[in-house]
Design a binder for these strands. Structure first.
Lengths: 202, 202
DNA sequence: AATACAGTGGACTCATCAGTCCATTCGTAG
DNA sequence: CTACGAATGGACTGATGAGTCCACTGTATT
């Protein structure tokens, strides 16, 4: 199916994915229906099933992929250049700002726990996203080491994993309570502790 | 309604709540039906609506409360006595062990993001749980300060918030990827950093 | 023993929603 | 300009599941 799409077809398909993503963020995976998506994207049932023959699940996975592709992109260029403490702080502020602005309309919220558990494809997407996210953080820590701002002996992967967990937790709490206190605290403390790890040895 | 329940009624009601909780953990909030719950708890439709007149939503909130009540209880007595580094480590290991055993059947997973967003009552329950959890961690930090194992100048609330976020993130990642690496890293690093905060000043 | 009400059973209704099917239009290659 | 397949419209089906209703049973109180 993929190769046979005309330009018009491709346009419609991505209109569907983008519109579906918006609907899912607004209404949540549970209560979003194909009719909602049809209304939003000005498409008909037959179009939905034309582009996603396996039905709703296939569409959800496509949306998951679409959202996942944007999560890290949205943190650029900061996430890709974590080579100084200033860069880390800039990145931190961007992340906080972005998630505060999203409020409880989180693209990850749709993936995380909602699609993820039901369809195996979506779980793979989340795993891959986490892997890449953590790898970006690890790369940032390594470049601080290269700069001599952090000692070489640091357990980079453990640091990156803990930082990633802190972010995810902060976001989860933001989603379920509406408060960003924890996200802020997690990121500030996480980076401060990383810095202190340098001072301790240096 | 509450006050009028006979002993038999109370027994049935809690059988429903407990059974529903089990069903929700197994099948997820999205795909669990009243029929599933009826089958599991050996009750009829009329019983469900007798005890929860407002229907499924009311039952879900009751389950949320039930689960929330158990989350902190399950971490006792460790969570209540975080007055030495050994106690923190014991608590940490209990938490990790418990969540690893649960795998993706997490009571919080049901609350967090799934019930929470739809019904306002459930959100309040999650907020209260987070508050109490964080307060327990803060109390632990304060008792370390009282012992002289941590300096008095520490920002206790920020530390506790960050630690809570780390846990939640670790659990979220465990739920969506099936791996507990991040939960372990988050707790180990979090406690290690707390300890280092003491050394730095002491 | 009578009565009143909590507790229980389960058939029935009604709405919703994913998915099917066929008819029609559009776009393009020959 | 025609023929073919992609693209689209939308009515229809079937399943599912929440919630209603009424009849029946158990039990405690007087």
């Amino acid at each position: 199916m993929r190769g046979e799409l005309t330009a018009k077809g491709r346009a419609t398909r991505s209109r569907i994915v983008e519109g579906a993503a918006a609907v899912l963020r607004e209404r949540g995976v549970a209560s979003a229906t194909l009719d909602d998506i049809m209304a939003r994207t000005r498409t008909s049932k037959s179009q939905l099933f034309h582009y996603f023959p396996a039905g709703k699940d296939e569409l959800l996975v496509a949306v998951a992929q679409f959202e996942a592709d944007h999560v890290l992109e949205d943190q650029q260029p900061y996430l890709g250049r974590l080579d100084s403490w200033e860069a880390w702080e800039q990145w931190r502020d961007v992340v906080i700002e972005r998630y505060e602005a999203q409020g409880d309309e989180c693209p990850l919220g749709s993936l995380f726990l909602q699609i993820g558990r039901s369809t195996p494809g979506a779980r793979a997407i989340v795993i891959e996203l986490m892997r890449r996210w953590q790898e970006s953080l690890a790369a940032g820590i390594r470049s601080l080491q290269a700069n001599g701002r952090l000692p070489a002996g640091l357990d980079v992967d453990a640091r990156a994993a803990a930082l990633l967990a802190a972010i995810q937790g902060g976001v989860s709490i933001l989603l379920s309570t509406g408060r960003s206190t924890h996200l802020r605290a997690a990121l500030h403390q996480g980076i401060a502790d990383l810095r202190r790890a340098g001072d301790a040895v240096a």
